[in-house]
């Protein structure tokens, strides 16, 4: 919650905070945050606000305050499920979901992750599998995730068994004919784009 009377627990250096804020404003649609009227429509529309450190409206208030380290550390963007409900409803047409994506990328780049959140790791193995095989296989992804979170996995046995019984569990990954094409493509960008 926003409370200006207590010191912010995770304030970065003012200069760094300002840099991050500028970077966010420079991403496509980022500057639109300045037009946010703090109406709260996004927060009221969001399916997972009850899990979020800051609901979207509040997160944008923090951005404008320059409290960027707190923003980047918060679990809010990682709990964003990309349902676009906020975006289609925002009276100022602010691309809220795209800003959540941008914040995730900035946090990932800065190596700041909300403690214990499971999405950064899941995205990582998903993206690794894409780079390796060119395609994703649900059951393989679940298996790799399960190795990281064995306790979590136990609660999913029922679903796993159900998929087995209905012959929907793949034991080998689906692949492109030549997955190296994707690995090469994804690597090549570093030398050309930006």
């Amino acid at each position: 919650m926003l409370n200006n009377n207590i010191e912010k627990p995770s304030a970065g250096s003012p200069q760094r905070e300002l840099q991050w804020q500028q970077r966010l404003y420079e991403t496509p649609g980022g500057r639109e945050i300045l037009g946010c009227i703090q109406c709260g429509t996004c927060s009221a529309s969001c399916p997972l606000t009850d899990q979020m450190d800051h609901a979207p409206r509040e997160l944008f208030a923090l951005v404008r305050d320059g409290a960027m380290e707190e923003v980047l550390r918060s679990n809010t963007p990682w709990f964003c499920v990309s349902c676009y409900q906020c975006m289609v409803r925002c009276p100022r047409e602010i691309p809220v979901t795209d800003i959540m994506y941008a914040l995730k990328r900035m946090a990932a780049e800065a190596g700041i992750f909300p403690k214990g959140h499971k999405m950064p790791g899941l995205y990582k193995i998903f993206n690794q599998d894409v780079a390796r095989y060119g395609k994703i296989t649900g059951s393989i992804l679940m298996g790799r995730y399960g190795l990281r979170h064995p306790v979590d996995m136990a609660s999913k046995m029922g679903t796993g068994l159900g998929l087995l019984k209905t012959r929907r569990f793949d034991f080998t990954p689906q692949k492109m004919v030549d997955p190296r094409k994707i690995a090469a493509l994804l690597k090549r960008k570093r030398t050309h784009i930006k």
Binding site: Y123, F126, N127, V130, I136, M176, D178, K181
Partner: peptide, 25 residues
């Protein structure tokens, strides 16, 4: 023929350029 994953909401969460490359292919 030989299509690739679109990256879904995962690639774009970590790497925008790679996400665009996947869909562009």
């Amino acid at each position: 023929p030989d299509w690739n994953c679109c990256g879904a909401t995962s690639m774009i969460s970590m790497d925008a350029e790679n996400a665009h490359l996947l869909t562009a292919r």
